[in-house]
Amino acid sequence: MTLSESINAAEQRRPSRFGRMFEDRLPYLIVAPAILILLLVGLFPLIYSLIVSFQRITMTENDTSFVGLLNYAELFRDTRLWASLGHTAIITAIALPLELLIGFLMAQLFIDRMPGRQIFVALLVLPTVISPIVAGATWRLMFDVRFGPIGQILSFFAGEPVRILWTVNPSYVYPAIIICEVWQWSPFMFLLLLAALSNVDQSQLEAAEIDGASYLRVLRAIVLPAIAPVIAVACLIRGLDLVRIFDIIWALTEGGPGSMTETISLYTYVQGFSQFETSYTAAISFLVIALLTVITTLVLKRMELAR
C-alpha cells in the first residue's frame, strides 16, 4: 500500500477502542521490548553477580552463605590483580596518545582535496574494521622470528641478522602489543579527526590566512579549539576500549610471558573461566565497572567544563 492509499484508507475508518488504547500507550509499548532485553541481559546478570560477589562460591565449593565484603577485601591483597591493572594502564597510556598523534598527522596529510583521496581513505580504514583477533593473528604472522617479514626488514637495516621473539621476549612483548594496537586504531582516530577538520569553518581559516597568521597560531587559536570536542569523544571511546583490551593480547601473547602482559580483562577471564573463582570474579567485575564509571564520569565532567 502506498502512502496516499493508506491515507485514503485511514480517512474511511474510525479508530476502534482497542486501536485507541494501543495508540495512547504506544510510546511505552515500543520502548518496552528493547528495555526488557537490556534489563534481562544487562541488569539482571549484574544484580545476580552482585549477590554472588558477597558469597563464597569457588570451583570446589558452592557456599552460598553471606560473607560480606570478604571478596572485596581480597581484591586489595591480590598483587596479580593490581599488576594487571598496571599493565592495562601502561598500554593505554602509551597507545592512546600515539594513536591520537598518528591519526592527527594522517588527517593533516589528507585534509586538502587531492585526486584519489577517497581511495586512500577507503584503504586506510581497513585495519580499523577488521576483527581484533584477525589483527592480532596478522601481526603474529608478521612478527614470526623465522618466517615473518619484520625480522627480515630489521635485518636489512641492521646489516646483520636480527632475531627477536616479539611475542615471547619480555623486552619486546609490550612494543609488539602496542604496535598492533596502534596499527589497528590510528586509522580510527584518523577518520574522526579528518571529519572534524573538514568541519572547521573554511572561511575562518581563510580569514586567518588573510590576517597573516602562522600555521601554529591557526592551529592553536582556530583548529584545535574547533576539534577539541571530537578529540575528547575519540579519546573517551578509545580509552574505554583500551581499558578493556582483550582480543589483541589473546591473539598475540595470551597474557604471557608468564602474566607479564595480563590486562584486567584477561585476569578476570582467567579467574572466572580457568580458576572458576566464581564469587571472586564477580567482585573483580564490580571493581572494573566502578573504575570505568569513575573514569568516564570524570572525563565527561571535563568535557562539560570545556564547553
Binding site: 569553518d201 572561511s203 575562518q204 581563510e206 580569514a207 588573510i210 582556530i222 579549539p225 574547533a226
Partner: peptide, 11 residues
C-alpha cells in the same frame, strides 16, 4: 576581507 558568515573565531 569581510566574509559572508563573518568568519569570527568562536573561541
Amino acid at each position: 576581507m569581510v566574509f559572508q558568515n563573518y568568519a569570527l573565531y568562536p573561541y
